[in-house]
Design a protein around this nucleic acid. Structure first.
Lengths: 327, 327
DNA sequence: CTGAAAGCGCTAACAA
DNA sequence: TTGTTAGCGCTTTCAG
C-alpha cells in the first residue's frame, strides 16, 4: 500500500510537504507538478483512518435505522443521502432490527468510530437508552421520537389524524371506523387515532374502533370478519399497508370501494398506488424530513450547535378510494 | 475523551498492560480487577480508528448498493446484515444512486477506509469501473453481475425464464405474451426472456413480445393499449411490479385474472401479495443470497481467499393469478 | 506478569 | 516554500 511517506520519498520532499500539497496548498509550482505526477502514477489515496485519528473525528455521519426495507425508513434515508452526497459527507448506516439492545450497541460503535453526528431513527426508547443518548459526547439527532433535551424531528401525527377525519366528515360520512394499532406506538397508535377521534366527535359522528397490528395479512383476515358486520361507511386504517389488507378483503367480499365504503390510510407510499382505486392517504414527507435532518446534522458538524425540535407537516392526499356519501 | 493512556495512568500501570487486559488477557488477577473497576467507572471505549489504523485494516465490510428502497436490495441487505450481526462485523453501506461515477467514488472511499471486503451490488459496469475493480487491493465480491476474474454472485435468470414458460405450457397455454425490458439489463432483459422463449418455442407455443420499462405506471398504460388486442392467454411480465401494472389495467378493463388471462411476474416480493389473486412469480432468495455473500466475505476477511463464482437458484411460486387454460 | 519503545499514516506547529 | 518534530490512540515486539 502506498502511503504519504512513500510519495514523499519518491518526490524527494518531506511528508509535510506532501501533506500540505494534499490539503492547504502552500507548495511551489515545481513540487506540485512533481507530486501531481507521482500521485497520478501510484494512485495514492490518503488513509482515511489516519486522517480521522489525527483529527480526532471523522466527517462521517452515523445513521441508525430501525430495520431495512421499511418504506418510510427508505424515504428518510433517501433524503439524508441526497444532502450528504451533495455535501460530500459519508454516511455510516447501521441497522437495529427493531431491537433496543442493538440500538445501544450501534450507538456505542458509532461513538467509537468518532463519527461527527449520529442520526437515530427511533422506535422505542427505554431508560438506559435515554441515559446513553443524553450523556453522549457525540451529538445526536432524534427522528420519530421526542426526548426532552435532545433535538428531535417528528411528524404532526395528531394533525394527520385530524385531516383524515375532516376529510371523512366533509364527504358527509357519519359512521366511521378507525382500524388502529396498539398504543405502545405513540405516533401511530395514539396520535393518529386521537386526532381522528377528536374531529369525529366534534362533528357528532358515530365512531368505532378495531385494533389490529401493522401487517397486511392480519388486517385482511380481521377485515373479512368485521366488514360484513360494520355499519361504517368510512374506514380509516392507521397505515397504508393496513388499508391494503382491508382493501383486499373488500374485493374478496365483493364490497365496492369507494361506492359502498370509503377507505383511507396513512403514509403516502407508492403501495397505495398498487391497487385501483388508489388509496386516499396522508402524505408524509419522509424524504423532506430526511433532508432537513441531514442539514441540521451538517450544521451540528460545522458549528457544534444542536438544532431545535421540529415538527414536520403532513398533507392529505385524496385519491380514488374515498368519495362522498351517497343517499 | 478517556483514552487507553488515561486508564493506564489511573491504574498506575503501563499502556501495554491495559492493552493486554483489553485483548489477550495476560494480566494478573489484581490489576485485572483494578482495571475492571476503572474501565467501568470511566466508561472507557477503545478508539476504533486507532485500532484499525494500527491493524492496517478494519473488520468492517463495505456494501455498495445501487439505491435505497429497492425491494431486492433490501432483501439482500437483510441477509448480509443477519450474518454480519451474528459475526459481529460492522457494515458500511454506501448508496450509488444508480450512478456509475458514484459507484467508483464509493469504491475509493471504502478502500481508503480500509474496509476488509467490499460487496458490490452492481448494475452497470463500464471499462473504467472494471479496471478499478480488478486492480483493487481490497477484495471485492460482486453481486448481480458477472465479471471474469472476480468472485460473482448471480441468479439463474435464464432458468427463471424457463420455469415460468414451463409453468405456462403445463397449464395448457399456447399463446404467450412476454412483457419485457431493454436488453441493456442483461439479467432481466436478456436472460429471463431467453429462457422463456427457448422453452416456449420448444413446445411450439405461439409467442409475442412487448417491450416496456420497469415502472408500474408505464406498464399499466401500455397494457391498457395491448390488452384489448392480444390473443395471448398467458402474460409473463419481466418483474412483479410490471405485472402489477398490467394487473391493474386488467381490472380497469374488466378482464378477469386468471379466468380470462393468466399473469405472472418475477421477483417474489411481498408486493405480489398486495393484490388478489396474488401473482404467480419466481421467488428469488435475495436474503439467502445476501447471507451467502456475507459468509463469503467473512471467509475472505479471515483467510484472504476469494471464493468462487456462484449461481443462485430460483423457485417457481404458484399463486392465484395463473390457471389451467379452459376449453 | 509487566513496561519501554517503536510505529501504523497522517497533520500541524515551529523553525529554517 | 520547505523540513523537523511531535503526537493522535492503539498494539506489539522485546526485555526485564
Amino acid at each position: 500500500m502506498v502511503t504519504l511517506n512513500d510519495i514523499a520519498k519518491m518526490a524527494n520532499v518531506s511528508k509535510s510537504t506532501v501533506s500540505r500539497y494534499l490539503n492547504n496548498g502552500s507548495v511551489s509550482q515545481k513540487t506540485r507538478e512533481k507530486l501531481d505526477e507521482i500521485v497520478q502514477q501510484t494512485g495514492y489515496q490518503p488513509n482515511l483512518l489516519a486522517q480521522s485519528l489525527k483529527a480526532q473525528k471523522s466527517n462521517m455521519v452515523g445513521v441508525i435505522i430501525p430495520r431495512y426495507g421499511s418504506p418510510s425508513t427508505n424515504e428518510v434515508l433517501k433524503g439524508i443521502d441526497t444532502i450528504a452526497y451533495a455535501e460530500d459527507i459519508q454516511l455510516m448506516i447501521m441497522n437495529s432490527d427493531l431491537d433496543i439492545e442493538r440500538t445501544k450497541k450501534n450507538l456505542r460503535l458509532l461513538q467509537r468510530q468518532k463519527v461527527g453526528v449520529i442520526i437515530l431513527l427511533a422506535t422505542a426508547i427505554d431508560k438506559e437508552l435515554e441515559e446513553q443518548l443524553k450523556t453522549s459526547k457525540t451529538p445526536i439527532l432524534l427522528v420519530g421520537q421526542k426526548l426532552a433535551g435532545l433535538p428531535s424531528y417528528v411528524y404532526k401525527d395528531y394533525e394527520a389524524g385530524r385531516l383524515i377525519a375532516e376529510h371523512a366528515i366533509q364527504l358527509g360520512h357519519k359512521k366511521l371506523l378507525f382500524v388502529g394499532v396498539s398504543e405502545e406506538d405513540y405516533a401511530v397508535g395514539v396520535l393518529r387515532k386521537k386526532g381522528f377521534y377528536d374531529v369525529a366527535k366534534q362533528n357528532g359522528a358515530e365512531i368505532s374502533f378495531i385494533q389490529t397490528n401493522f401487517s397486511r395479512s392480519k388486517n385482511y383476515e380481521k377485515a373479512l370478519e368485521f366488514l360484513p358486520k360494520t355499519q361504517a361507511t368510512y374506514i380509516a386504517a392507521a397505515t397504508d399497508l393496513m388499508a391494503i389488507g382491508i382493501f383486499n378483503a373488500c374485493m374478496e367480499l365483493g364490497i365496492q370501494i369507494p361506492h359502498q365504503i370509503s377507505l383511507s390510510g396513512f403514509g403516502g407510499y407508492n403501495e397505495t398506488r398498487n391497487v385501483l382505486p388508489h388509496i386516499t392517504t396522508i402524505q408524509y414527507s419522509h424524504s423532506g424530513m430526511g433532508e432537513a435532518v441531514m442539514k441540521a446534522a451538517i450544521q451540528t458538524l460545522e458549528t457544534g450547535e444542536n438544532s431545535l425540535n421540529t415538527e414536520w407537516p403532513v398533507q392529505l392526499l385524496i385519491q380514488g378510494s374515498t368519495e362522498e356519501l351517497k343517499d
